[in-house]
Write a protein that binds this DNA or RNA. Structure first.
Length: 420
RNA sequence: GUGGGUAUAGCGUAGUUGGUUAACGCGCCAGAUUGUGGCUCUGGAGAGCGUGGGUUCGAGUCCCACUACUCACCCCA
């Protein structure tokens, strides 16, 4: 269908775009408070970037990317996540040669994943994300978690839980993998069919299974947290210390496993409880080896991504109203042959910074007022023959109906006082 | 990718066991004596019933396929 947006995409209509703008404003402010500055990277990148960065065994890379050949026979992919592009940008422009850490955020960045759309899940969605390159201390991980937490809190979202975990580093994780596999191998026959498949591909995922039988079997499974190397253990301990000092509620959830290969040490999720179950609004973690893996220097980094559509969805679910800026400050109505006078008044008001409009459909005065009322304009400015002859304008406060006549030259000024 | 549900004007719905020009609410437009909104009243425009086949004298109502939307699984923001 020509008149239908592609599956999994959504239009943001003029009547609701202010909600997005509201979020954007809040997000920019939060980021700026912690020293994050905006970065804008392309919507598409070389496919290779994601294959190497995100990991070519991940679901995202294996089956969810929008990949195509451009006319120069290059394999191009629409961003399936935000971090890889930021890392590439950081590297390409040698930002590591500047003062570190290098902190950046992206906003409203379109993210594409070919998945079956459903509640809270689109093929094109938008993220706000923060990335910090060049800092290895857990204070960074903590500041990012706090940034996301306070932002959501500030927006009015309750039921927020912060879950953290550490998935170790290339030094200790293989050991854990092995231990877990050995543990699972002994119980393989008792696992559900999906978990038997997961056993090879991603054994960590088995710990997250919802099947009763699997939960029982994995109750005493070894925990990554007990097998962290000294460095990772200390880092994780420091992170918790930071979070405790910030006095925010958080839980260590050893089952958090992120679907992207680049994560090391810290991984975290901000989850909210809705009537239809839990919804992750924000996810992130540390990726100390991504930059190096892309051919850059050894460079620790942390970041998170937050789905705007999901945030908006939660605000709806909780009945949180976003203040509307309104449409017009004033509406110009006119009678008879005073169209040009009305046009000039409208333009004059706009020059004074008053958001206004006039009738463009040749409607009757009555209809013009109806329209003004519908748009929610708080003030109307009317020009009829009398006003035109006297060089005045008739102003009306729509909420009370009170009217006054003022010289045309003072219209803007008077309207401003009426709005105050 | 797999399974379930749905598909009638801009939106939300009604359409009895298949039978004349498809109904209602909201919204939209226009009026209710001369220069004015929000309430009320009146009138009007707007769909041929997701698409394509089939059954039938006749289908929005039955059958098939396709598509879209939606929910769940998987995975994720």
């Amino acid at each position: 269908m020509l008149t239908q947006a592609p599956r999994g995409t959504k239009d943001v209509l003029p009547a609701e775009s202010y909600r997005w703008q509201y979020l954007e404003t809040k997000m920019r402010r939060s980021a700026a408070l912690a020293g994050y500055r905006e970065v804008r990277t392309p919507v598409f990148e070389h496919t290779e970037l994601f294959a190497r960065g995100v990991g070519d065994t991940t679901d995202i890379v294996q089956k969810e990317m929008y990949t195509f050949k451009d006319k120069g026979d290059r394999s191009i992919t629409l961003k399936p996540e935000g971090t890889a592009g930021a890392a590439r940008c950081f590297l390409e422009h040698n930002l590591y040669a500047d003062a570190l850490p290098s902190k950046m955020y992206y906003l409203d960045a379109p993210i594409f994943r070919y998945e079956a759309p459903q509640s809270g899940r689109l093929r094109e969605h938008h993220q706000f994300g923060c990335e910090c390159f060049g800092a290895k201390e857990a204070t960074t991980d903590a500041e990012l978690i706090l940034l996301a937490f306070h932002l959501l809190k500030d927006l009015g979202i309750s039921n927020l839980s912060v879950n953290i975990n550490s998935i170790g580093c290339p030094k200790c994780r293989p050991l854990y993998h092995q231990a877990l596999k050995e543990f699972l191998a002994d119980r393989f026959d008792g696992l559900c069919p999906t978990c038997r498949e997961r056993f090879e591909r991603n054994p960590l995922r088995v710990l997250d299974c919802k099947e009763k039988q699997c939960r029982e079997l994995t109750k005493d499974a070894p925990s990554m947290l007990n097998m962290l190397c000294g460095d990772c253990a200390e880092h994780f301990e420091q992170l918790q210390e930071c979070l405790r000092s910030a006095d925010i509620p958080f839980a260590v959830d050893a089952r958090i496993v992120r679907g992207l290969d680049y994560y090391t040490k810290t991984v975290f999720e901000l989850i909210t409880r809705t009537k239809d179950g839990d919804l992750t609004v924000c996810g992130g973690g540390r990726y100390d080896h991504l930059v190096e893996q892309l051919g850059g220097p050894d460079m620790p980094a942390v970041g998170f991504g937050m789905g705007l559509e999901r945030v908006l969805m939660l605000l709806d679910a909780e009945g949180i109203e976003i203040p509307s800026p309104g449409w017009y400050d004033a509406f110009v109505t006119y009678m008879g042959d005073n169209r040009i006078q009305a046009f000039r008044l409208t333009e004059a008001l706009r020059k004074e910074g008053i958001r206004c409009d006039m009738d463009h459909c040749g409607r009757s005065l009555k209809a013009q007022f109806k329209y003004a009322n519908k748009t929610g304009a708080p003030v109307t400015a009317t020009i009829g023959d009398e006003e035109a002859a006297a060089g005045t304008v008739r102003l009306k406060r729509m909420s009370t109906g009170e009217e006054q006549t003022v010289p045309a030259g003072r219209a803007a000024e008077t309207i401003r006082t009426m709005l105050a």
